[in-house]
Design a protein around this nucleic acid. Structure first.
Lengths: 193, 193
DNA sequence: CGATTTTTTGAATCATATCAACGTACGTGG
DNA sequence: CCACGTACGTTGATATGATTCAAAAAATCG
C-alpha cells in the first residue's frame, strides 16, 4: 500500500520521512473489483484516485449511447473527474475498473488540507498537472494531424502495457473510432510488413 | 502593461502590493506585430507568454505540410510550447500573432525563481495548469464524441470572440478539418434554421 | 482600384461508419 | 470437466460523410 504513490511522489518531489508520514495520514486506500465503479455520471466526484495496481478507465456516454473512453489509468497514474472534483458539480464521466485494482484516494478535504499544509504537495500536484496537460496536448495534436495508422503505432509504442491488458474495442473507443475500423487498421499494418 | 496579467493573477490568487511588485520585477513585455513569430519550430521555447492584447496561435506542421492549430490565445490566455520550455528540447510548435499583440513574458529563470521565492506564484501556475487541463479534456471529449455541427456550435458559443477575429480556415485547422468542410457545415447550420 | 486572401460551390474520390454474419475465446453453471 | 452462452475480433457489402481538386465569388488590404 502507498508504495507506488510515494515512489511516484518522491521521483517528482523528494520527501523526508516525516513529510511522507504526514501526507500518508491524509490518504486512504480502496480496492475495486473488475467492473466496479469508482464514479458514476451524475454523482459528484469525491476523490482523486491514484492507481497502485490494476487499470481504470474514465469514459463518457453521448446522446446516442456510445461510450467514449477519455483516459486509461495504469499503475502510477491518477484518475478522476477533475472538474466535478474541484467544483462539486455532477460528474460527466464514469470511472470503473478494467482489472481488480488497488487505489490510493485523496478526498477533497484531504486535498485542500495538503495544499495548505504541505508545500511539496502543491509542487507535486503542479508537476502532475503540467505533465498531464502536455501529454493531453500531444494526444490532441496527433488526433488532428496524423493518419489512423500512425496514431495506432504511436499509441502502441507509447503504452505497450495497455495493448496487452485492454480489449481492442476499448482502444478503438479511446481513439474515437469503431472496433471494425481498428481491426482493419491492424490488418493493414501487419500486411504492409 | 501588466494590467490584464495581474487582474488574472489576483482573480485566481489575491496578491498584496508588495508581492505584486516583486513578481513584476521578474516579468518583461514584448510587442508583436501581426504575422510575427514568438517561436519557431526547432528553436527552444524561452518563455511563457501571457497575452495582454491581441491574438496568438500555436500550430504544428505535419509531414505533408499541413498546418494544425493547437491553440489560440486571446487576451488573458497564456501560450507557449510548454514541453520545450520545461525540457529545453526543440519546439515542435510555431507561435505567431494573428493581430498586433502585447505580451507579458516569463523567462525560464524568472519562472524558476518565482516558483522558489513566491508561493503564490506556484499556486497561480497550478490553478492555471489545472484549468488548462480541464479545458483540453473537454475539447478532446467533444472531438471524439460529437458531430461536426455540434462541435462548431459549441465552439462558437464558447469562444464568440474568436469567430469575429480569426479567419474561418484557421478555425477549420483548429477543429482538424478542411476549410471547405467547415464552410459546408456553416451552411448546413444556417439552412436548418 | 487592383491584388491577394478568404470563402463558397461543385464533382469525383477516398476513408470510415454501419449493418450483418461468422469464428473464436472465455468463464460460468450444470 | 464439459457445454453453453456471452464477449470479442474479424470480414464483407454498402452507405455516409469528409477530402480533394478546381474554379468562381466575395471580402480585405495596400
Amino acid at each position: 500500500m502507498y508504495e507506488v504513490y510515494f515512489e511516484n511522489f518522491n521521483q517528482k518531489v523528494p520527501l523526508t520521512d516525516s513529510e511522507q508520514a504526514q501526507i500518508k495520514s491524509f490518504l486512504s486506500v480502496k480496492k475495486l473489483r473488475k467492473k466496479q465503479y469508482l464514479l458514476q455520471e451524475g454523482d459528484v466526484c469525491k476523490s482523486i484516485a491514484f492507481v497502485e495496481k490494476g487499470i481504470l478507465r474514465a469514459y463518457a456516454i453521448n446522446e446516442t449511447g456510445t461510450e467514449h473512453i477519455i483516459q486509461f489509468a495504469l499503475e502510477g497514474w491518477t484518475v478522476s473527474d477533475l472538474y466535478s472534483f474541484l467544483t462539486g458539480e455532477q460528474a460527466t464521466y464514469n470511472i470503473d475498473a478494467l482489472e481488480n485494482a488497488e487505489l490510493v484516494l485523496i478526498s477533497k478535504t484531504a486535498h485542500e488540507e495538503l495544499l495548505q499544509q504541505v508545500p511539496k504537495y502543491e509542487t507535486y500536484i503542479r508537476l502532475q498537472m503540467t505533465n498531464a496537460y502536455i501529454a493531453l496536448q500531444k494526444r490532441l495534436a496527433s488526433t488532428v494531424s496524423l493518419s489512423l495508422e500512425e496514431r495506432y503505432k504511436i499509441f502502441t509504442a507509447t503504452y505497450p502495457d495497455l495493448i496487452q491488458r485492454v480489449p481492442q474495442h476499448m482502444i478503438a473507443s479511446y481513439m474515437g473510432l469503431t472496433p471494425e475500423t481498428l481491426s482493419r487498421i491492424r490488418r493493414r499494418i501487419t500486411e504492409n510488413k
